[in-house]
Design a protein around this nucleic acid. Structure first.
Length: 487
RNA sequence: GGCGCCUUCGUCAAGCGGUUAAGACACCGCCCUUUCACGGCGGGUUCAUGGGUUCGAAUCCCAUAGGCGUCACCA
């Protein structure tokens, strides 16, 4: 590919940035970055006046930046093909729509939405393709006058050529062919003068010299409409690549029911952008070797549209968790602590300002639990362990363990030994357990379990000596006393 | 319903006419360990079904089934 690669991501700002959109953006970005002269363009398709919002646009841009997907041209940064908001390009669409009308390739349609809906319904009933039947295709001047006098505002419809085969190439699916009779005359400009998606994309992609259009598979059926427009307008058709959808666990399209769907949600849950990017890249694309973990630079190097899968992919949160954990291992404990702090503040475990010594203890605690964490918010699963001294033993087996006849002597000796050490740290606490097993001649479990349960309320958890260290002698004794008041 | 896309372990997937059908996540077992987690080792009737083509098919062709998308004055 010696020509310049120009790709774009063109979201409509109608909601939080979806994970599927993020993958589309990533694939485009990866392709642009793979070639030294590649350009990644960000265009905002805000022609849906009802649903578009500035807030959504900001969310999308913030998410892209967080993921590290920077754009060379587009909104905010500008470029020679601007403007990059479709609502600022209305004149352009108007000009091309007029051109099509003048050439007889498009016409005004005075049908109302109700009439169209009724027509479609009737066709569906007859098992026919629900396409526009061409009522306004050849209106006389009189008819037009009549409609105008009724106050009808026309849309502009494209006069789709009949009995033709519409063809285009798709990097993922191969050569595609559609019957133009299945396309029908579709609206290109709404009654309010705003262009419809299929019309605006074509003009924008053509005028912005986009060479490759990588987008979700849901656009595949729309592509013939766009191809006939490219032809009518005399534009060069770009190379398409329709990547498959991302599905939820039940194989339906990802939605709120499946948990977090927006990039922002993953960010807030404490996932790392590198991990999310890595995961998204592996959804629908497979490397040539057996590598699983890719830095962004490695991804750019390894990525290729040749190995993009055709079939839809189920979003597997388990794998994301694993990947994220791999990336978290590389982080300093301090960093992981900082990831947890917002959650701790939100849940009321912490209050601002956080004192330096409190912070230091928190970091030490994080060091003890960090191996148990797949993402930041999971810290909350361990927060009670550290912050909540009101230990409650709920589990039946745990209660049972505390009734063992050796418990009183074990706990007694444990307290005695704990009192006896000079340096209150895990290194000095750890040997105590061994000493007790020896002196009392009981098994390790008989020692560890009563202590663990009375100190944490749980049978399982992170390193016990470490927990005891961060809690400090007083809190440990306090907890034991609450659980075993008799001792 | 028409049109279109898709179909290899539970999930992501390698595979492009001849392989013991990779690998990863998850799961199960074992080891490590006071426990859990981490880590290590090991395990699993995976080519939707039915027809072809071929000496030979997960790979090519055709049907069927299922899943999904799309048929908007949404993108």
């Amino acid at each position: 590919m010696s020509e310049q690669i120009r790709v774009r991501f063109a979201p409509s700002p109608t909601g939080p940035f979806h994970i599927g959109g993020a993958r589309s953006a990533l694939f485009n970005w990866l392709l642009a970055r793979k070639y030294s002269n590649g350009k990644f363009v960000l265009r905002v398709e805000d022609t849906d006046r009802v649903r578009s919002s500035k807030e959504s646009e900001e969310n999308i841009k913030a998410s892209l930046k967080w993921l590290g997907l920077d754009w060379d041209e587009g909104v905010d940064v500008g470029g020679e093909y601007g403007p990059y908001h479709q609502m600022e390009r209305l004149e352009l669409y108007k000009k091309y729509a007029q051109q099509l009308v003048d050439e007889g390739k498009a016409y005004y349609c005075y049908c109302t939405e109700e009439e169209i809906a009724a027509e479609r319904e009737a066709l569906m009933k007859e098992n026919k393709m629900p396409i526009y039947q061409g009522h306004c295709r050849h209106l006389t001047a009189d008819q037009i006058e009549k409609y105008k006098s009724e106050g009808r505002k026309p849309t502009i419809r494209f006069r789709t050529p009949e009995n033709e085969t519409v063809e285009f190439d798709d990097m993922v699916r191969g050569h595609m062919q559609f019957d133009s009779n299945g396309v029908g005359d579709f609206v290109i400009v709404k009654a309010d003068g705003i262009p419809v998606y299929n019309f605006a994309v074509v003009i924008d992609d053509a005028l912005m010299n986009i060479t490759h259009v990588i987008r979700a598979e849901e656009h595949l059926s729309n592509t013939p409409r766009q191809v006939v427009l490219y032809d009518a307008l005399g534009f060069t058709v770009p190379v398409f690549a329709h990547i498959s959808l991302i599905l939820g666990k039940d194989h339906s399209k990802m939605s709120k029911r499946h948990g977090a769907t927006s990039v922002e949600q993953y960010k807030n849950l404490g996932y790392l952008p590198e991990a999310l990017v890595n995961f998204l890249a592996l959804l629908g694309w497979a490397p040539q070797d057996e590598k699983e973990i890719f830095s962004i630079d490695e991804l750019i190097k390894a990525f290729s549209m040749d190995h993009v899968a055709k079939n839809p992919a189920v979003f597997d949160i388990d794998k994301l968790n694993w990947l994220n954990a791999q990336y978290m291992k590389k982080l300093s404990t301090k960093k992981i602590t900082m990831m947890a702090v917002p959650h701790l503040l939100e849940k009321g475990y912490l209050n601002e300002p956080i004192a330096a010594d409190e912070m230091a203890k928190l970091v030490r605690f994080t060091e003890i639990i960090r191996d148990h964490l797949s993402y930041g918010a999971q810290f909350l699963d361990f927060a009670d362990l550290y912050f909540n001294d009101d230990i409650v033993v709920e589990d039946a087996e745990s209660k049972q363990i505390l009734t063992d006849e050796t418990v009183p002597s074990v706990i007694g000796l444990f307290k005695e030994k704990l009192n006896g050490i000079a340096d209150f740290d895990a290194e000095h606490i750890q040997p105590i357990f061994k000493q007790i097993t020896k002196e009392l001649k009981v098994g390790g479990k008989k020692v560890y379990m009563p202590v663990r349960i009375s100190v944490t309320g749980q049978m399982h958890g992170p390193d016990l000596a470490g927990i005891i260290e961060v809690l400090g002698r007083e809190r440990v004794f306090d907890r034991i006393e609450k659980v075993l008041p008799a001792l």
